[in-house]
Amino acid sequence: MWTREQMAEQAAEELQDGMYVNLGIGIPTLVANYAGDRDITLQSENGMLGMGPFPFEEDVDADLINAGKQTISELARTSYFASSSSFAMIRGGHLDLSILGAMEVSETGDLANWMIPGKLVKGMGGAMDLVAGCKRIVIVMDHANKHGESKLLKRCSLPLTGQGVVDRVITNLGVFDVVLGGLRIDQLAPGVSLCAVRSLTEATLVE
């Protein structure tokens, strides 16, 4: 089984030189820590291209935050712009990759990550725009919810963020690609058996 950090490290293998990438809130934010020496440019949908790491204490600036509302720093390459320009980048297909969290993913690549009716409402924020516009969508999430139920489903039960939009799912148990007919196991985390994954996954797993 992978930890949160190991899932982020696994997701970082998606990063390639020259990519423009948007990272969601939570585990996806950690992916930046594992970029190594690859030359990637991070986009933050509140209006920044070229997002830097967290600032040193003395450089904290209330006017410089990421989409998760965290204080961050700028880089030499940084540019700032209005929200409509930010989403022109996203919706216009100019970003190579987005890595997001999820509540549920279906075997056909449907994604649900913005509300649980009657219980929890986060709002979709920029997620619907990202999944509709980015060239590749990778989800990083726990394989099961807190009740031990599979989050990889035949059909999502929660309101969708996008339909048929997910390319790959990285969970604490392994890496799964959305292909014709279901999810194909790309690899399993150390110590996780195929048998265990089958019993913990509701979605159809294909060879």
Partner: peptide, 9 residues
């Protein structure tokens, strides 16, 4: 609820 990019646009 509006998608953020839809709201900006």
């Amino acid at each position: 609820f509006n998608p953020q990019g839809t709201l900006a646009e």
